[in-house]
Design a protein around this nucleic acid. Structure first.
Lengths: 348, 348
DNA sequence: CTGTTAGCGCTTTCAT
DNA sequence: ATGAAAGCGCTAACAG
């Protein structure tokens, strides 16, 4: 494995000149530049990452902090990661993956103290996030995918939940729906201050009011049975509901089952819309569901860019960005129909 | 940030003694050991990863090569990654994610020459994989999740496709099915030598014969419409088929749609079984599908262990392992029924 | 059992 | 525009 020294000798220059040529840290005459790069090519030289990092105090390695616990691994999560990896490489960084508890500050501290990474990208932050507090305190570079309650000076990128809910409700309202149910994450998740759960809940309430429709929100665990029960409970209590927005795709099969058990059809008897689920997941259902697909890869990318921006000083984008979800119209939303029990009260 | 030097002074020993104490590379008297570790704790010392790596020529960083192109991002892919990350950390390694083309040997070479990683774990290898050839040639440590045609001396872990298919077919045969369809990946994927596609195809043919049932295999692209068409084509040609095994979950919604369009029901009129799809995906359908769920996290873990085994010499497991898929019985497989057209020929 | 010291391969002052 | 040399923080001979 050739070193810089080898390149220097072959190009008849000093070692430092090679370094300067590579990093462009100071002017080099075109002629020697050529000699150096030719030598490099001929030797198949690649700078040694560790040595470079040690000397420059910049490893060009980032860590993506990825808590696995939260709400099970979703289909979009991988997209986040790939988006981040690709962006990192684009910017000349490596990305190490680090899974750990949401509030395991100790492990985070150890990772950082190893001097391996120049900065970290946090995923799944809570409204009050210990990791964020910690990183702020020790003034270690970081960026956040998601956002905290206090976003002052916080470099983050997140989904525009307001827009997402608005677009979803709009879509339903345009189809004539005026009584809309909403299944959020489970209560515990909400109470833990999981951003999406909290923000979508707020947005749902505000926007249904704004638009003059009736909204009923419920919490629902992330499995089919929970969806089944939540749906039945909701419709028993609010039979007027003709459309449901769902935050957690995992409960969907149960909801569909419950609908089917009533002899109902989607979307004829009830419309269903996913709030932040990938197109891919939406298409796994029959009928394909209407969804607001999150810009997962873009969020991953932006998260990395936000961080690199601090590290390199180069301005890539605004330091606080909300990205819209994209409405993908499937076949689970349709014009409002009268409910069966309205058509024929004998059925209930 | 304290260095080893600081620890040494505080513990009244030489710098090297601290090093030896940390690495356990040579005997240290219990007393000084204590002094050193106390000093470390008091200073909150963490060894500097880059410096250590540079000096020891072992970075304790691994790369997981994860081609994104192949067949779209599946739901299990993230599990692989998490499994690998966790295993790596367990063994004291970091894991960087590296996405690149399946046969982009150049980029792989550059990664390696940077001296950043001690070894790489390859995912999605082809039967004849350029990366494998390259790594063998330069004698760089690696392990493989999947396997090549020539597995001599190849440290790999893979799904036991033979067992998977056998278990699936057994399940169907026990339910009385004797005419079984099989949807493989697309022809191109098969021809590119994508291991799972090739191995499952072989296994399907062999095992159906062994068990004395009739099997009909087809290729099918990874989207709903393809499933729809493949299903109709298959059943038009082979109306005797009462069960279908599917390799690629993406085509499933189309298959279900086609079934529905015929006025058929799953599993009453036809059984459906997924071959290598996660439980999670299987449960997203209605009814929940029967599947052979791959041991994704275990494969990721084993892949890393196989590599570390070479690196550290510690023996963690056999260097060639096939892991079984796990049969998760859903509601998409049931006892064989006579087909509609047999019951009532007028329908067709 | 412990200390001294020469690197690991590179960046970056300080000279020229 | 180029060189020389002092580290970056650690490991691993080599010495005792």
């Amino acid at each position: 494995m050739p070193t810089m020294h080898d390149v220097a000798r072959r190009a008849n220059v000093s070692l430092s000149t090679v370094s300067y040529a590579i990093n462009g840290t100071r002017p080099i005459s075109e002629e020697t530049r050529q000699r150096i790069f030719t030598a490099m090519r001929e030797l198949g030289y690649q700078p040694h990452a560790l040595a470079r990092g040690l000397a420059s105090k910049r490893s060009r390695i980032l860590a993506l902090l990825f808590p696995t616990s939260e709400r099970g691994l979703g289909n979009t999560d991988l997209e986040f990661i790939i988006g981040a990896v690709d962006a990192a490489r684009e910017l000349g960084y490596h990305l190490i993956l680090w899974t750990s508890g949401v509030d395991d500050v100790v492990e985070l501290g150890q990772l950082i103290q190893q001097g391996l990474v120049d900065g970290v990208v946090l995923m799944e932050v809570h409204l009050h996030d210990k990791r964020v507090e910690y990183l702020r305190e020790i003034e270690f570079p970081f960026s956040v995918i998601g956002r905290c309650a206090d976003v002052a000076e916080l470099p983050y990128t997140d989904i525009d939940f307001e827009q997402t809910v608005r677009e979803a409700i709009s879509h339903l309202v345009e189809l004539g729906h005026a009584d809309i149910g909403f299944f959020n994450y489970a209560l515990e998740v909400f109470e833990a201050g999981y951003g999406p759960a909290v923000r979508v809940a707020q947005a749902f309430e505000r926007i249904t009011q704004e638009m003059g429709v009736r909204g009923v929100a419920r919490f629902c665990h992330a499995y089919a049975q929970a969806g089944y029960e939540a749906f039945n409970a909701l419709l028993d209590e609010h039979p007027e509901i003709t459309a449901i927005a769902v935050m957690n795709e995992r409960s969907v099969p149960g909801i569909l089952q419950a609908i089917d058990d009533r002899g109902w059809c989607v979307p004829d008897d009830i419309s269903l819309i996913l709030l932040v689920s990938s197109r891919q997941v939406a298409e796994m259902s029959m009928p394909p569901l209407t969804t607001l697909a999150p810009p997962a890869a873009e969020l991953g990318k932006l998260g990395v860019e936000l961080l690199v921006q601090q590290l390199d000083g180069r301005s890539v984008s605004a330091s606080q960005t909300l990205l819209p979800c994209h409405l993908v119209v499937g076949e689970s939303t349709g014009v409002r129909r009268q409910h069966l029990h309205e058509q024929n009260p004998l059925l209930r």
